[in-house]
């Protein structure tokens, strides 16, 4: 699915990613953990194709394609989804209209006709209900005056509507209360199948109790310093980043 080799990325001359290797296969869930400023968001933005990053070295293969050849929207329509750490507020744009536009962009990309209005209404209603998002919310401007938790739920709603092949969740758990955390995780788990993959970025092992990862990676100073299974997350909780990185 996704194969990152020796990735070196800098911003304004400042080196952020420093020889990062990561390989994710179909059907796998990987957790990426690391201290603040270690480069987690940078990695997710860079994979999505955000401007302002310079790649000095490395390669990224996505389903047999060179990911770097694709524009931001092409990557998205090819199934790469990023749940933002800080979702954008877009004033004046109704949430449901945005969702429909996104769905139709993907359908167009795959040569499908636009979604039927009724079908869309049904789809969005059932999905929103599962995530405990009120219909009133969908009529409001996208993310404007949403609480932190509501924004994160909105990201998961978009994810489930777009049904991506490769989802990156950047600290989706931060700012969520315990109920919301459960709802969001259930949303992710429901989506999980043998054909799609997840990269779950988090600080806390807490989220991983809900979304059981197949692999856990620890990132420090822009590269992965240790990989393992779920037990690594438990070990990390106990020892802290510093110690784990040392033993690496």
């Amino acid at each position: 699915m996704l194969n990152i080799k020796d990735l070196h990325v800098s911003i304004e001359g400042k080196k952020i990613l420093n020889g990062l290797n990561l390989s994710i296969n179909k059907g796998e869930v990987h957790a990426l953990m690391g201290p603040n400023g270690s480069g987690k968001s940078t990695l997710s933005y860079f994979l999505s194709g955000k401007d302002g990053y310079e790649m000095e070295r490395g390669s990224i293969d996505y389903n047999g394609k060179n990911l770097l050849d694709l524009e931001v929207d092409e990557r998205a329509n090819e199934g790469l989804f990023l749940a933002f750490q800080y979702p954008m507020e877009i004033p004046g744009v109704q949430t449901s209209f945005f969702l429909k536009t996104a769905i139709n962009s993907k359908r167009k990309h795959h040569g499908l006709p636009e979604i039927d209005a009724l079908e869309f209404a049904k789809l969005i209603k059932s999905q929103a209900q599962e995530l405990d998002i009120s219909p009133d919310m969908l009529r409001r401007d996208l993310n404007v005056n949403y609480s932190g938790g509501e924004k994160k739920k909105q990201e998961i709603l978009q994810m489930s509507l777009l049904n991506p092949a490769m989802s990156i969740l950047d600290e989706t758990d931060s700012g969520l209360d315990i109920d919301a955390l459960r709802i969001v995780s259930e949303g992710v788990n429901k989506l999980r199948n043998k054909d799609n993959s997840f990269l779950v970025i988090t600080h806390y092992q807490r989220l991983l109790n809900y979304i059981k990862p197949d692999y856990v990676h620890i990132i420090a100073d822009g590269k992965i310093v240790k990989s393992g299974d779920f037990s690594l997350a438990l070990e990390l909780e106990e020892k802290g980043y510093e110690e784990i990185s040392k033993t690496a």
Binding site: G49, V72, D73, P87, I90, F98, T101, L162
Partner: peptide
């Protein structure tokens, strides 16, 4: 960037934001 990450092309994204 946010809109394009959701699959909108740049013209659609501009149109959407400006309409907002």
């Amino acid at each position: 960037f946010y809109c394009m990450q959701r699959g909108l092309n740049s013209e659609d994204a501009v149109g959407l934001i400006v309409n907002g």
